[in-house]
């Protein structure tokens, strides 16, 4: 049955249904509803909710919980995500699985609390120190966000990696009808042969991102890199709409992509065929498919709620084979369909 759900709350419920019973978090707009939902709902299902003293503590509580092999998550918004970067780097080094939800708001600094996509670099290129990667999933509807939660936890466990759901204030605050997947048994997850469960009848296990010997640390890093390569080979996800025979392809993700879906209809009325290329995994980014598409069209316009961050990945994918103009508004200002349509027209000289 479909229920009308707020994005933040739907993501929370979906995480619980994915078998997550541990949530640590710190209130921050525009996602505090997610934190509040967890504080109500987790006790009902025998889970644990803890409001940490800061985002710095939050991510370290996740570190500790993840060490024990349990599914754990947090949610935050941009300034909070910045504070978590230290712990994220340590968790990546310790090969600890966990799920982060970043409901992005306008920045930099305190910024504002309106929707933005300006944490793209931070999520996909690092943010914390060291050669690490995070899987980054970008839902564009609440239903998709719900569906991706299961995937997020599964990918995190499968690859022993961190997964970030990169949403934005709009997805967090809006409501849509959603259908939830059935509840998964939190104990029904694959055995983790690295988890710290007590050294009973076996040698002690250690979780660490630390080695004083550079050659040993290099070995650890090469292991991380091998994992990242596997993810790049197997986990690229994207949606294509109308790209076949399009006059122009627009590359956009998340909320921006659904605005483009409206633009497709508007443009159709003016005789322009607009295609949409929507990366669902921002890391690993669908470079290969974008490169193929660049052979079929003259122009690939990138549209973002930021000032040209994903644009850099689009250009890497296109690799000079098509024109790659850009349109974006940021700082919490959401481009309207009309503005995007104007940018489309400008890009093709109409």
């Amino acid at each position: 049955m479909k229920m009308l759900f707020k994005g933040s709350e739907a993501i929370a419920e979906a995480a619980i249904r994915a078998g997550c019973r541990l949530y640590f978090g710190y209130p921050i707009t525009p996602q505090s509803e997610l934190t509040e939902y967890m504080s109500r709902r987790l006790p009902e299902v025998g889970g644990t909710f803890l409001q940490a003293e800061s985002e710095v503590a939050t991510v370290n509580m996740m570190y500790g919980a993840s060490c024990t092999g349990k599914r754990v998550m947090t949610s935050t918004s941009s300034p909070g995500f910045s504070l978590m970067m230290e712990g994220i780097s340590y968790m990546a080094g310790g090969e600890l699985p966990a799920v982060f939800v970043n409901v992005v708001r306008g920045g930099p600094g305190l910024g504002d609390i309106q929707p933005a996509q300006s944490d793209y670099f931070q999520a996909t290129k690092g943010g914390g120190h060291g050669d690490y990667r995070m899987i980054v999933l970008a839902p564009h509807t609440i239903q998709e966000a719900v569906d991706l939660m299961n995937l997020a936890f599964d990918l995190a466990d499968k690859y022993r990696m961190l997964v970030t759901i990169l949403a934005d204030g709009m997805l967090g605050q809006m409501m849509e009808p959603v259908e939830f997947p059935p509840m998964r048994d939190p104990n029904d997850v694959p055995e983790k042969d690295w988890a710290l469960t007590g050294a009973k009848g076996r040698p002690p296990r250690k979780v660490t991102s630390f080695h004083i010997d550079p050659y040993e640390l290099e070995k650890m890093n090469l292991r991380y890199q091998a994992t990242y390569k596997k993810v790049e080979e197997n986990e690229v996800r994207y949606e294509e709409l109308n790209t076949d025979g399009a006059d122009i392809i627009v590359a956009a993700y998340g909320t921006m992509a659904r605005i483009v879906k409206t633009v497709i209809h508007m443009a159709e009325k003016e005789g322009i065929k607009v295609g949409l290329f929507r990366p669902i995994t921002l890391w690993p980014f669908p470079y290969k498919r974008l490169n193929e598409l660049a052979d079929t069209v003259d122009t690939i316009l990138t549209v973002e709620m930021s000032y040209g961050q994903m644009l850099e990945d689009v250009r890497l994918g296109v690799n000079g084979k098509a024109k790659t103009p850009f349109y974006g508004r940021s700082a919490g200002v959401v481009p309207t369909p009309t503005e995007v349509l104007d940018a489309v027209k400008k890009a093709i000289g109409r």
């Binding site: 541990l22 370290n60 509580m61 500790g64 919980a65 060490c67 991102s209």
Partner: peptide, 15 residues
């Protein structure tokens, strides 16, 4: 495990 500098009580809390 070994925690980030100063964060051991938070890591222990999570565990």
């Amino acid at each position: 495990t070994v925690a980030p500098h100063g964060r051991a009580p938070a890591v222990a809390t999570g565990m």
